[in-house]
């Protein structure tokens, strides 16, 4: 009994610790004046209205969406077939990919960015300050998430046996990949993409150092906004929080739907 109460207190404290800044942010984004009182003196949605009608905000949001979508698409196109090929045909390369996929964790963003600026500001590929360098470095940034989430999708099925079974039935290699393998790993790929979206939406260091004002993403806009108007910045953070929350719920739902439909089907047939 005593133990139960203690556990509850700990959980409440943790949640309070986690939610306090969020609640404060939310309140501040709808407060008219909030200086010496515990709660704001008045409430308004004008900051949200201001934010969502600001062309600068729309522009930066679109830029972030654009760079995220291109990066993730590129990543899916390269990583999914690579993992498939290593599992079925070149199992010895698996270790290499495994190591490659955790390398970005070992590199702080600042080092990565400075290295890239030096590498790409002269020479044959001069892309510093353009969106291309951002896409390139984002690709590296999300590699661990993309690789691990996609890999876990592959781990759930016996890729080699399924491939061989399809081949024996006269299915071509590409056809096998599209008809047999892809439908079974698509859930893993989707969750990999969603995780990457939330990572890229929150990315600031690389964007600021590599492109800065040349390509103002959402986070750079937020950074600037903070210096201008705290309420507006908080409205942006609150919206951002909501988007990521929805994304996470979508992820959980995707994982859950699989189990739920399996249970429902089982009930139907037996």
């Amino acid at each position: 009994m005593k133990k139960g109460i203690l556990a509850k207190i700990v959980i409440i404290l943790i949640f309070a610790y986690l939610f306090f800044p969020i609640v404060a942010t939310l309140l501040f984004s709808v407060a008219t004046k909030w200086t010496t009182t515990i709660l704001p003196e008045g409430y308004t949605f004008s900051y949200y209205q201001q934010l969502f009608t600001s062309p600068e905000f729309i522009q930066s949001l679109l830029r972030t969406v654009y760079v995220s979508v291109i990066t993730i698409a590129l990543s899916v196109v390269l990583i999914v077939p690579s993992i498939y090929l290593t599992i079925v045909y070149y199992p010895r390369l698996e270790r290499f990919f495994e190591i490659l996929s955790v390398l970005p964790f070992a590199m702080p963003g600042v080092i990565l960015a400075i290295g890239m600026i030096q590498m790409y500001s002269s020479g044959p590929i001069r892309i510093t300050g353009t969106v291309w360098i951002l896409i390139g470095s984002y690709f590296v940034l999300i590699l661990p998430y993309m690789y691990q989430a996609t890999k876990s999708g592959f781990r759930a099925i016996n890729v080699k046996a399924l491939t061989e079974a399809a081949l024996m039935l006269g299915c071509g290699k590409l056809e096998t990949f599209i008809k047999v393998i892809l439908p079974n790993i698509i859930r893993g790929v989707i969750s990999a993409a969603l995780i990457s979206v939330s990572v890229l939406f929150g990315e600031f260091v690389l964007a600021n150092l590599l492109v800065g004002d040349n390509y103002e993403t959402l986070q750079i806009y937020l950074y600037k906004l903070q210096k201008v108007d705290g309420h507006l910045a908080n409205a942006l953070v609150a919206s951002y929080f909501l988007v990521i929350l929805l994304l996470s719920l979508l992820l959980i739902w995707l994982a859950y739907r699989n189990n739920a439909s399996a249970v429902r089907d089982r009930g139907k047939t037996s």
Partner: peptide
Amino acid sequence: GQNIGMVFQSYALFPN
């Protein structure tokens, strides 16, 4: 044109 049927140890049925 090779027509050989095979049953695998793990059956390898397509889960989807």
